[in-house]
C-alpha cells in the first residue's frame, strides 16, 4: 500500500477540515492514517483476537497447573506425623524446583527460550500454542501459591468433617475445601488474571501478531508512534476494567451463602 502523506490527505479532505488550525489538521491526519486508511482498525481487532486466545488459554492452563501443584504441596504438608507416601516425596521437590525456576526468571526470557530453543514454532497456530504454554506454565507457578494459601485458609475442621464422613483426601478437597477456598482466593486470582492479560503483550517477541505487535506494525508503516501506542494503552486499560468488573460480579455471587 502506498504511503499516505499529509499533503496528499489534505488535498482530498472535506471542506470543514480546511477551516481548522494546522495542529488539529495534523492530529486528524494521524487518526485517519492509523485507523481508517487501509482499514487499519482491523489490525487492532485481529491482534485482539490473538490476545484473547492467548490470555484465555494461558489462564485455563495456569489454573489447572496451579491447582495440581497446590494440591501436591498441601497434601505433602498434611503429613505432619507420619512420612508422606513415596509419590509425594518425589513430586514435592520437583514442584519446589519448578516454582523456583519459573518465579526466578523473567517472563520475556521464558518466552525466548520456549520460542527459539524448545518449541520453535513455524506457523502462527504453533506460535499461539507456544505462547499459551509458556504463559500458562508461568502463571501456574503464581496461581499455585495463591491456591495453596486459599486451601490453608479453610479451617481444619472442614477437612476432618469431610474425612469423617468417608470422603478420601481428594474428594474432601474437591467437594468441601476447594469450593470454599475459591471465595477467599478470588481477589488474588483476579490480580493474577490481570497481570497475565497484560503479560500477553510480550508474545510479540515470538512473532505472534497480538494487539501489541499490530500497534508496532502500524507505527512502522506510518512513522507515527503517538496514536497507535496511546490506543494500545487504552485498549489494555479497557480490558482490565472489564475484567475487574466481571470479577466483582462473581465475588458478589459467591458471597450469597455468607448471609
Amino acid at each position: 500500500m502506498s504511503t499516505l502523506t499529509f499533503a496528499k490527505w489534505i488535498a482530498d479532505a472535506p471542506g470543514w477540515v480546511l477551516g481548522l488550525s494546522e495542529g488539529l489538521q495534523r492530529f486528524l491526519f494521524q487518526l485517519f492514517q492509523c485507523f481508517i486508511y487501509g482499514d487499519r482498525w482491523k489490525m487492532y481487532l485481529n491482534g485482539l483476537k490473538i490476545t484473547f486466545i492467548v490470555t484465555l488459554g494461558a489462564l485455563a492452563l495456569g489454573v489447572v497447573i496451579g491447582l495440581i501443584l497446590a494440591i501436591i504441596r498441601t497434601s505433602y504438608d498434611s503429613y505432619t506425623v507420619t512420612k508422606p507416601p513415596i509419590i509425594l516425596r518425589i513430586l514435592n521437590p520437583l514442584v519446589q524446583i519448578y516454582l523456583t525456576v519459573i518465579r526466578g526468571t523473567p517472563m520475556m526470557v521464558q518466552l525466548l527460550i520456549m520460542g527459539f530453543v524448545i518449541m520453535m514454532p513455524k506457523t502462527q497456530a504453533g506460535g499461539i500454542a507456544c505462547g499459551i504454554i509458556t504463559l500458562g506454565i508461568n502463571s501456574g507457578a503464581y496461581v499455585a501459591e495463591i491456591i495453596r494459601s486459599g486451601l490453608q485458609s479453610i479451617p481444619k475442621g472442614q477437612t476432618e468433617a469431610g474425612r469423617s464422613l468417608g470422603f478420601n483426601f481428594f474428594q474432601t478437597m474437591w467437594y468441601i475445601v476447594i469450593p470454599q477456598a475459591i471465595k477467599n482466593i478470588l481477589p488474588a486470582l483476579g490480580n493474577e488474571m490481570i497481570t497475565l492479560l497484560k503479560d500477553t503483550s510480550l508474545v510479540s517477541v515470538i512473532a505472534l501478531r497480538d494487539v501489541t505487535k499490530q500497534a508496532q506494525n502500524i507505527v512502522s508503516v506510518t512513522y507515527n508512534a503517538f496514536v497507535p501506542y496511546i490506543t494500545l494503552a487504552l485498549i489494555y486499560l479497557a480490558l482490565v476494567l472489564i475484567l475487574t468488573k466481571l470479577l466483582r460480579i462473581l465475588e458478589k455471587r459467591l458471597k450469597k451463602s455468607d448471609h
Binding site: 475442621g157 472442614q158 476432618e160 468433617a161 468417608g166 470422603f167 469450593p179 470454599q180
Partner: peptide, 26 residues
C-alpha cells in the same frame, strides 16, 4: 493398620464435632 482403606470404614462411623463443622457453602 495403615494398609487398610480407612475411608470405607469411616463411612460406618459417624462423628460429631465440638465446632459442628457443617459445610458453610452448602
Amino acid at each position: 493398620d495403615v494398609s487398610v482403606d480407612i475411608n470405607v470404614h469411616r463411612q460406618k462411623m459417624g462423628m460429631v464435632f465440638q465446632q459442628f463443622n457443617l459445610f458453610p457453602h452448602m
